[in-house]
Design a protein around this nucleic acid. Structure first.
Lengths: 233, 233
DNA sequence: AATAGTATTATGTCCATACATAAAAAACTG
DNA sequence: CAGTTTTTTATGTATGGACATAATACTATT
């Protein structure tokens, strides 16, 4: 009719976004079906589908077969955090990366660890603790348990120069995992390692990765006071 | 070639995942191009494309025109956090949601606020503070500044029964935003509101949303000790 | 040998068409 | 009327073919 130039899915998406934002289609509203939109935009249905599917993935639209497509009543903001190797994270900030292994030993872990990793309570695992540094100041304290049954080559590594964080990502594949973020008070030991005061509020990332039914590794990363994890919406 | 063809993109994706995981294609490796894979899998190139694109979106593959597709050397784990309305979050845990407004006033904000929201330093904003509760215990402390120039109807609301958190999501659209997670020590006032000890480590979410070039609202959510934000990989 | 222009190539996307599938609505049945 | 079956419908996806685009590889020019 008027603007015949919705010739790619990005422009269709933009127009849909514009309408949502301009309240032409309000939260909860049912929007026209794909066939009608394709007709209006002068493109193929597949193109409209591509645009809408992508918006649904980002949580802005709710789609159901037969029921149609509606604007999400509660736009669930999906914040995507990129969990990279710490070295990359530090270098990405333009800082010099440093690494120092603190401890490496085989030991029977506390029950909390063997329990969540579903390893036998008396089975000994590889325990590695290390400090990541940025511009020569402490950045993150890594405390990790590795399952040697799954990561067979892992026992041969010393983790003295290459962090377990980095080595595992490259050599130990995983199928899925869990990650949790929280705030904890620094113990005296943690405070000493991170050069901060005891009971400082530290940002913690706990991660547990699996290869099928077997735990690969469980790690806690403690970041120094003031650390922020940020992303865009 | 024999393999009773992969007739949908999900099964193609599974097979590709299997090969990556089984180290048939190792991190950094270049994998066959779409045409060859389509031939091997006995499906259309579009189907292979769909599977690979989806894996690239989740960070497992790196794709570049002409250069081809390769297994990500550093599989960037993308953790997607669903940021919902707090009421939904609490109810989702099977707990009873409670809400209580603490304060509501118009005031000129501190420079740190007006600065990040890019409002005029002398412009007064709407300041709302409230407590979210789960099963009658404090859950999150919300401290929010609202830009009345953008959220025109916002001044009419009392936020006494419906939280600003919820009201704004429904009535104030935004184009983009920033979100940051961190750990902070509870001040004496925060400790009092959340019924915890002073200097407890609290999990903080800071969010700033924009409507084009104007800030809509800036909010800090403080969660009680022990709170975890979790997701799967 | 450095530079600019050209060819090649793998991914990216659009299209028309067809069929699959989930779920709502309507029709049917006891 | 409640419960079950059938129809309808909007989204989901597969296909082959075509052209677009970005980036590398190659070639000609200076």
């Amino acid at each position: 009719m008027n603007n015949p130039s919705f010739r790619n899915w990005q422009s269709v998406q933009e127009e849909v976004l514009r309408r949502i934002h301009a309240r032409v289609w309000k939260p909860g509203d049912l929007i026209p079906n794909e066939v009608d939109l394709a007709l209006e935009f002068g493109c193929a249905r597949t193109t409209v589908n591509r645009a809408l599917r992508s918006l649904a993935e980002s949580g802005l639209l709710d789609r159901r077969r037969k029921a149609g497509t509606r604007v999400a009543a509660q736009p669930v903001a999906k914040a995507t955090l990129d969990i990279t190797v710490i070295r990359m994270e530090v270098e990405g900030r333009g800082q010099k990366y440093g690494y120092q292994r603190i401890e490496r030993r085989e030991a029977v872990p506390p029950l909390a660890i063997s329990g969540s990793m579903k390893t036998h309570a008396t089975r000994s695992l590889l325990h590695v603790r290390a400090l990541h540094m940025a511009d020569d100041t402490p950045y993150a304290f890594e405390d990790r348990w590795i399952n040697p049954e799954v990561v067979r080559d892992g026992l041969a590594e010393s983790y003295e120069t290459v962090s377990a964080n980095e080595w595992l990502l490259k050599h130990a594949p995983y199928t899925h995992g869990e990650i949790a973020f929280s705030a904890i008070s620094a113990t005296s030991e943690e405070a000493k390692v991170l050069c901060c005061h005891q009971n400082s509020a530290l940002f913690a990332i706990d991660r547990l990765t699996w290869d099928g039914a077997s735990a690969v590794t469980k790690v806690r990363l403690l970041f120094g006071p003031g650390h922020q994890l940020r992303t865009n919406l």
